[in-house]
Amino acid sequence: MTPFIKAENVCFSYNTGEGKKIEVLKNVSFEIAKGEFVAVLGRNGSGKSTLAKLLNMILVPDSGKIFIDGKQISADTMTEDDVYEIRRKIGMVFQNPDNQLVSSVVEEDVAFGPENLGIPSEEIRKRVDDALDEVGMSEYARHSPHLLSGGQKQRIAIAGIIAMSPSCIVFDEATAMLDPSGRKEVMATIERLNKEKGITVIHITHNMSEAAMADRVIVIDGGRVAMSDVPEAVFSDVGKLRSIGLDVPQITELFYELKKAGLDLPDRIIDAGKGEDALLSFFEKPRN
């Protein structure tokens, strides 16, 4: 099966004002399958956000190839319509909820994308209602977004993307500015979109507990793919994550320390509940 997204040796750099060239991505290659939930983990300035903008052609790589749905995307060979079709297919939700909402009425904002696509009015109406329902914001349709909480605004932004019926949504640090309850709302919405609607999700974050919810974690460090595996495997490599400057869940860190001290405990614990069970059975063993 061809992967939904495939990047081959992608390089990207930008010029600073003083004529210096800064390499942001160096030979990045990865594949993402249709319907997969991938978390991209990395420090600020590691090149994560640049990667996102390459996928929907807001930025163009210096070298390397990117394939969407088996077809190579390239500014040279594609028409403007093709480019916008890619942007429809790969929706994007950004960090600051305030800076991506265009209208002072929630439902009109959600309608913005479909309107740009030239969809007939009745169809837009239906899509907007469905999208708002999907993110649980129907009752706010006629409200003004500026009075809503950060989590609610982000859900509106998500609805605005869903209304364009994308196959993939990239969340570019979409939870970074939210409080814990806002994060929970947004993460629940993301999981539902992925599990129920089969939308491919790329969630860019530096929050490890969010990354732990994904099917796979890609760690970007210094513009390169440093790790790519299931969360259990990535987080168990505590030493490497620490050297990159990322956190691991406390439970994983505890198991890492305990095993280092010589306790015979299982690998790949990233979940508090499983950790508790493992420790309980460890201490119960001799009694049996």
Binding site: R87, M92, N96, E108, A111, F112, G118
Partner: peptide
């Protein structure tokens, strides 16, 4: 300026390209 920049990117990502070919939900 930063907001304007981010908003412009977000609008591009939502396929905005001026008024041509644009429909409206509410007529």
């Amino acid at each position: 300026l930063r907001r304007a920049d981010e908003l412009a990117t977000a609008m591009e990502c939502r396929c905005y390209r001026g008024g041509d070919g644009r429909t409206r939900m509410k007529r």
